[in-house]
Computed example of a mutant assay.
Amino acid sequence: MNALFKRTAKCTACILATSMLALSGCSMMLGEEEVAVEETSRPAMNVVDIMAIDRPSPQKEDDDEQSNEHEGMDAFGAIGQPTLYSSVQGAYKGRPLTKHIGDYVKNMTQDLIANMEYVNEKTPIGVTHFALIDTNLQETDLLGKQMAESFVHELHKFRVPVIDFKATDYIRITDGGDFVLSRDYLELSSSLPIDYVLTGTMAKHQGGVLVNARILGIESRAVVASAQMLVPFYVVEALIPSDGSQKNGMRDGVKLSRG
């Protein structure tokens, strides 16, 4: 009887132990499931593998820069300027100019005034076109003509008396406009109170046009002032002929004229 009671108690203890172990195992499994649910409910971290980023090759970067420049942007993506600044045939193509031929004439005039002798407010000056140095000195171009016009302006600013010998004593009214200037020597005065004349020559240089300016005495032919400057090609090419560039009388893309 005692042995049967001990065996029954031992079996009951085993059953209780087994039940407790099963319950603890279920609780442990439940805890793992809860942890798994919590982990899946958390937001995923935005981790980027910098080593796996597709970096552009140097050749691709050069191609992108050329494409940006072609589209009017520089290498930093800034909007650039258009490459064409006039619809006129033969217009200057490039970046906007910060200086024009008048700025170079201004500097040359200052040099002339700095070393000028004998010329004063009572000695009128005439200004002629600048001749091409490698010709018979009877040919000029648009640059030589515009330089003469700019020198008239600059000399007048220094209060040096300038005589415009191309002015007639009447105004010609035509269908093309009203004019007082002429290149016909028969329409001009043969005697003018000019004591000195500003003239010069031009020579093409590797970087532009080399301009030599001087003031001469009409009677003595003495040089009383001189100046020299290199005008860059991009400033020269910014001058656009009004009659186009496909006519006769062209030399190296420049229309020549006499006088």
Rank of each mutant, 00 (worst) to 15 (best):
K93P: 05
R95A: 07
K99Q: 13
H100F: 10
H100V: 13
I101T: 00
I101K: 01
D103I: 01
D103Y: 13
V105Y: 01
V105H: 00
K106V: 04
N107F: 12
T109I: 03
Q110S: 10
Q110I: 09
D111N: 10
M116F: 09
E117W: 06
E117A: 04
Y118M: 14
V119M: 11
N120T: 08
P124I: 02
I125G: 04
G126Y: 02
V127C: 06
T128N: 15
T128L: 15
T128G: 10
T128Q: 15
H129K: 05
H129G: 00
F130T: 00
L132Q: 14
I133V: 15
D134V: 01
D134C: 08
D134H: 11
T135R: 14
L137A: 13
L137M: 14
L137S: 13
Q138Y: 15
E139C: 06
E139V: 05
T140Y: 11
D141Q: 06
D141P: 00
K145T: 04
Q146G: 00
M147V: 03
M147H: 00
M147L: 07
E149T: 07
E149G: 10
F151K: 00
H153T: 07
L155D: 05
L155F: 14
K157T: 13
K157D: 10
F158Q: 07
R159K: 10
P161S: 02
V162N: 13
I163K: 06
I163W: 10
D164Q: 11
F165V: 01
K166D: 04
K166E: 07
K166P: 00
A167S: 10
T168C: 09
T168W: 04
T168G: 08
T168A: 14
D169E: 10
D169T: 04
Y170G: 01
I171Y: 02
R172Y: 05
R172I: 04
R172M: 09
I173S: 09
I173R: 13
G176S: 07
G177E: 01
G177V: 00
D178V: 09
F179N: 06
F179R: 07
F179E: 06
F179C: 05
V180I: 01
L181R: 09
S182D: 12
S182M: 11
E187L: 14
E187S: 03
S191L: 12
S191I: 09
L192W: 12
L192F: 12
L192R: 14
P193K: 06
I194D: 03
I194V: 08
V197S: 04
V197E: 06
T199P: 03
T201Y: 15
T201P: 10
T201I: 13
M202L: 14
A203V: 03
K204R: 15
H205Y: 15
H205F: 15
Q206K: 15
G207C: 03
G207T: 08
V209R: 12
L210V: 01
N212C: 09
A213W: 06
R214W: 07
R214D: 05
I215Q: 02
I215E: 02
I218V: 02
I218R: 03
E219N: 08
E219Y: 09
S220T: 03
V224E: 04
A225T: 01
A227H: 13
Q228L: 11
V231G: 02
V231M: 06
V231E: 04
